[in-house]
């Protein structure tokens, strides 16, 4: 079968397996220490070591040329209005550009949609990708920050505030956070887009569906725990703080298999992270078309592996054309030829 949805279904299958593993492992076999301590620690180690490896690997590879993509007016004559953000000429301006890229997805915000109507190309605004990506990433960030309350004691004030704001719209009881809904909205949009937008579907692999489905599963198991099953928060907190302070315990109170599923999915995400496209989180900071200043003619960029390349020197060239040049009455430069000879 050659369906456009194969890769999606394969990812779904993997997700199902990832859910089944802790269900059997904890629910049936009772391997709480494995799933509650060993795997989370292992995942964390893979995550951290993997990301550091990627980072060092990028940082150590040289960037031979200064190749910013200039999306705005360069700095040239003083009376010409220039774009500090899109054609940054200093480190500070590069910083600004990066800030807008990383936190506001500025380049994605430019997105357009091209349509062919008969013989006419029409460009429409297409901000939904930006919106979906923002909802998802912002939601993700807020959720991670909110989780700090499990791991840090006393709970930092900003986490409390965040939680209050996030839970301000009392949607259900107990509170369903706004960020949970928004991230689901964002993720669903990104997923549907991958399934039903012909172009995006065509370029998608299982490895593109998988992270989306994995994060969706994490969010859903999280919400389920909170809203429906209500596991023993106190016990989880106790366990999490012990975990964070490297004095792991096997949770005494029965935490429910759902908790272990949630935890295992998070561990899977952490382990998958360094080996996948998710490294764009770190990679974006290294992108030479965005993090270099457009000051090429002001400041020389050095290529560490530069090597000399032989070119046709003036002396060689003149020798070749001596006759025609003399005939045309063009000056012959013996002086330079001698000088050049001396130099070599």
């Amino acid at each position: 079968m050659n369906s456009r949805y194969n890769d999606f279904f394969f990812s779904l299958l993997i997700i199902a397996a990832l859910i089944l593993i802790p269900m059997i492992g904890v629910g049936v076999l009772g391997l709480k220490f494995l799933f509650g301590v060993i795997i989370p620690y292992g995942a964390l180690a893979v995550f951290i070591i993997g990301l550091i490896y990627r980072m060092v690997n990028w940082a150590r590879s040289p960037q031979p040329f200064k190749i910013p993509t200039t999306c705005g007016q360069q700095k040239s004559l003083p009376w010409i209005k220039r774009s500090r953000l899109e054609s940054p000429a200093s480190t500070f301006e590069v910083g600004l550009r990066m800030f807008f890229e990383v936190f506001l997805f500025r380049s994605l915000f430019r997105n357009l949609r091209a349509d062919l109507e008969g013989k006419k190309l029409i460009y429409g605004s297409a901000k939904f990708l930006w919106l979906g990506a923002m909802l998802f990433h912002l939601g993700f960030l807020i959720i991670i920050l909110r989780h700090l309350r499990f791991f840090v004691y006393p709970v930092p004030e900003f986490v409390n505030i965040l939680e209050k704001v996030d839970g301000f719209f009392q949607i259900s009881f107990p509170t369903l956070y706004l960020s949970d809904l928004l991230i689901l909205l964002g993720l669903s949009f990104l997923l549907l887009r991958r399934l039903f937008d012909a172009k995006v579907n065509y370029i998608s692999y299982a490895s593109d569906y998988f992270p989306l489905l994995l994060i969706i599963s994490i969010v859903i198991t999280g919400i389920l725990m909170r809203v429906i099953i209500k596991p023993d928060i106190f016990a989880i907190k106790h366990y999490a703080i012990k975990l964070a302070t490297f004095k792991p315990i096997i949770p005494e109170a029965p935490l429910g298999v759902l908790f272990y599923v949630h935890l295992f999915l998070v561990s899977s995400l952490a382990m998958y992270f360094p080996f996948s496209k998710l490294v764009h989180m770190i990679g974006v900071f290294f992108s030479p078309t965005r993090n270099m200043a457009n000051d090429n003619r002001m400041k020389r960029h050095v290529n560490p592996w530069d090597y000399p390349v032989k070119y046709t020197t003036y002396a060689e060239w003149q020798e070749k054309f001596r006759d025609v040049m003399e005939e045309a009455g063009m000056p012959i430069d013996e002086e330079w030829v001698k000088e050049a000879q001396k130099q070599t």
């Binding site: 990627r54 994605l108 990708l129 937008d197 172009k199 496209k277 490294v279 764009h280 992108s287």
Partner: peptide
Amino acid sequence: DICVRCGA
């Protein structure tokens, strides 16, 4: 390494 195949 970092393309997410967003299709932008």
